[in-house]
Design a protein around this nucleic acid. Structure first.
Length: 336
DNA sequence: AAAACGTGGAT
DNA sequence: TATCCAAGTTT
């Protein structure tokens, strides 16, 4: 990994945030680019949120990027720009929870805090044959208690944390681990009981809802486009999109309905709106399925409009959800 | 305390 | 195709 062996708390912080619910392969390039553009706390703290989000574009869980910026500012104000070196100060930063606080505390400062992530949860549940639901608070508490006991004998918390996570990622894998070759099998209770494949227990009930988005990508003859920043408490907060109407059911809008939508949004346009093409996308998220139609529209000129919207000639500085990023790439929109 | 938050790759 | 999973946190 690009960050292995690094002691720089800032870099460890960035890498740990990127790795939250994200595979190394997926986050690798993001880490390199992020570090290059924002090499230290100071450069991040003075950045603009749109740019930070642009560097996060496509990675998902965008609150991570927004919190990164907030935290950098907090470090500037409360800690004089120097990364805090106590667990209490670290966990008080936005975007940093128990796992990340323990990771930074041990990796950067050698403090004795056990990490408890998905890997560790799996390893401990098998090793101790604990069939509690690892998503429940009580099971996590139980396992953390177990680890804290173990940590009394741990000399190098950083090495131990790194080791147990790697062990989970490489040996004690979720499905069909090779227990016969495992160095821990002699003391593994789940192995002894023959229930390795039953563990860990995860009880989750996610109900997926379907949402239907109609996007209107209006471009004028000068190549200007109309975009909006998503600021509501919803998916993709802080990212940009075209004028959008959400509906309960899938529908195809007529030219008249499209024109009406622009009229109602009090957008001033010179010339008639003409439809070039309708693109369809299905986008799968954890808790919802987005079914989107993107109407590619042209007009003579987009005039100044309300302050919630933006008329942009180049879209390269704005972060878009993957769905729209795909659309922009497919249509070779001025996007650099 | 449960539900929401993204995306891509594996099963 | 559907579901699960990945170095979790916030509300």
């Amino acid at each position: 990994m690009p960050w292995s062996g690094i002691k720089n708390p800032y870099r460890i912080w960035i890498s740990e945030i990127i790795l939250q619910q994200t595979r190394v392969k997926q986050g690798w390039d993001y880490y390199l680019r992020f570090i290059e553009r924002f090499p230290d706390i100071c450069s991040l703290a003075s950045a603009n949120e749109d740019e930070v989000l642009k560097y996060w574009e496509g990675l998902g869980y965008y609150s991570r990027a927004r919190n990164l910026l907030k935290a950098a500012k907090q470090i500037e104000e409360l800690h004089g720009g120097k990364f805090p070196n106590t667990y209490a100060d670290i966990i008080s930063l936005p975007g940093i929870g128990p796992y990340t606080a323990a990771a930074i505390s041990s990796f950067a400062f050698g403090l004795s805090y056990p990490v408890l992530d998905g890997n560790v949860l799996r390893v401990i549940s098998r090793y101790t044959s604990n069939d509690g639901d690892i998503l429940s608070q009580s099971t996590k508490k139980e396992m953390l208690k177990y680890l804290q006991e173990v940590f009394k004998k741990v000399e190098d918390p950083a090495v131990f944390n790194q080791a147990i996570m790697n062990f989970g990622a490489m040996q004690c894998v979720p499905s069909s681990p090779e227990c016969g070759e495992c160095i821990m099998c002699k003391n593994c209770k789940a192995y002894e009981e023959g229930i390795v494949n039953m563990l860990p227990v995860k009880i989750k009930k996610i109900k997926k809802k379907k949402r239907y988005f109609s996007y209107f990508d209006l471009e004028d003859e000068a190549g200007n486009r109309l975009i909006f920043r998503r600021d509501k408490q919803d998916i993709w907060q802080g990212l940009y999109e075209f004028l959008m109407v959400e509906s309960k059911v899938l529908k195809t809008l007529s030219d008249a309905e499209i024109t009406k939508t622009f009229d109602e949004s009090q957008i001033k346009i010179k010339g008639k709106i003409t439809l070039t093409k309708v693109h369809e996308y299905k986008h799968q998220l954890t808790h919802q399925t987005i079914i989107a139609k993107v109407y590619a529209l042209k007009c003579k000129k987009i005039k100044e409009s309300g302050d919630e919207m933006l008329i942009a000639n180049s879209l390269s500085g704005y972060a878009f959800p993957r769905l729209l990023d795909l659309y922009l790439q497919e249509n070779k929109v001025n996007y650099d």
